[in-house]
Design a binder for these strands. Sequence first.
DNA 1: TATGTTATGTGAATTTAATAACATGAGATC
DNA 2: GATCTCATGTTATTAAATTCACATAACATA
Lengths: 214, 214
Amino acid sequence: MLKTLRVPEATVTRLSIYSRFLERLDRNGVTTVSSGEIAEGVGVSPAQVRKDLAYFGEFGTRGVGYNVKDLLKYTLKILGLDQEWSLAIVGAGNLGFALCTYRGFNVRGFHIAGVFDNDPTRIGKRIGHLEVQPLERFPEIVQSENIRIGVIAVPISAAQEVADLMVKNGLEAILNFAPVALNVPDHIEIRNVDLSVKLEILTFNLAFRAAQSL
Amino acid sequence: MLKTLRVPEATVTRLSIYSRFLERLDRNGVTTVSSGEIAEGVGVSPAQVRKDLAYFGEFGTRGVGYNVKDLLKYTLKILGLDQEWSLAIVGAGNLGFALCTYRGFNVRGFHIAGVFDNDPTRIGKRIGHLEVQPLERFPEIVQSENIRIGVIAVPISAAQEVADLMVKNGLEAILNFAPVALNVPDHIEIRNVDLSVKLEILTFNLAFRAAQSL
DNA sequence: TATGTTATGTGAATTTAATAACATGAGATC
DNA sequence: GATCTCATGTTATTAAATTCACATAACATA
């Protein structure tokens, strides 16, 4: 079933989006869907949808389409979301707080197993069922909760230090919200989420493209 | 100075990142930088940096490099950040709250001119210098504050409705944090930020690629 | 059971983006 | 002021991603 080709990251990105769209269809009781409907629903081309899925196997029925429940199950499995992943969030400021309560993190196989900060005014504060822990307890909780993924939600100035701590404690992947390139060993999976980049794409399009067309 | 070529969005994305890196260099008193140093600092190739800049003109000096202050100024100008942009954030939940206080939104030419919600328990709440406004005041404040960009920080179920409201009130660009594809007219610039996609790229890499190499 | 319809899966063609390689020119050195 | 060094700007090359187009197969219908 699983072909052994290099899968473009853009394909994985879209797979995640298809997957969430399928969840919605499923909740609405839709049982069958075509590549065209998925494409329409998420804003890509039908060929793109089929090509993306083709990296991983054949999931549809010619002349019919895809079974929503099945395809959802497959996409979740491909993304590794058929298992639960424990996360550690470091940084309990406004962003860390928002991430702790973010549904997208809590419903799709993710379990926030620890929130950490080194600011005494934040330690002990409750966020939902969680309590902000001092950074000193990071190693212990990572181990006891079997945490493999870390989320960095601290200011730029502290980000590298936190990344180092994560690497040192054996985390395998890092999601970094600080707008800075972090230095980590090659075997660590790291991705950055920069909240303002997309905003600046918008201003570029409004300002620059507008200026060009004059 | 401004060449008239289609600029890849990936280039604009990187430009935004270069720009922030240059800000940091400038704060640290660095006056000159090479494409190699920028590349190193943000995690791309030197050729990529030069290629990206070449879309917009010649900013460096051969044999020397780029003047940090000048290049920063140019990149900001290209991104449209030499002017101030007023934003409206709709949704004053945890995410909306975090965005209001997010430095990246507040320092680089952006001015949050209004936060809106329709939940009575949130209306009137203060977020920094802002006060959460009822959605009814959206048209009035958009007009008086000259708001051109809207940020959607509401749940999926309300996102399309909010987008419609933004379009109807003449906003030109939308940054959407709800994980759903929104329907807007072609002349509206829209970009989605999906907080969990990157997380799922990480789990894909940990789970799927790990399974393949077995 | 044959025929028509429909949507998949895929190989080829096209477009787009990234990398490599090099000619150019600015400044430094002697 | 001639020469050398260095990093840019740019062209050529390679690689990658997307789109196109169609053969294929499943189902429905008569």
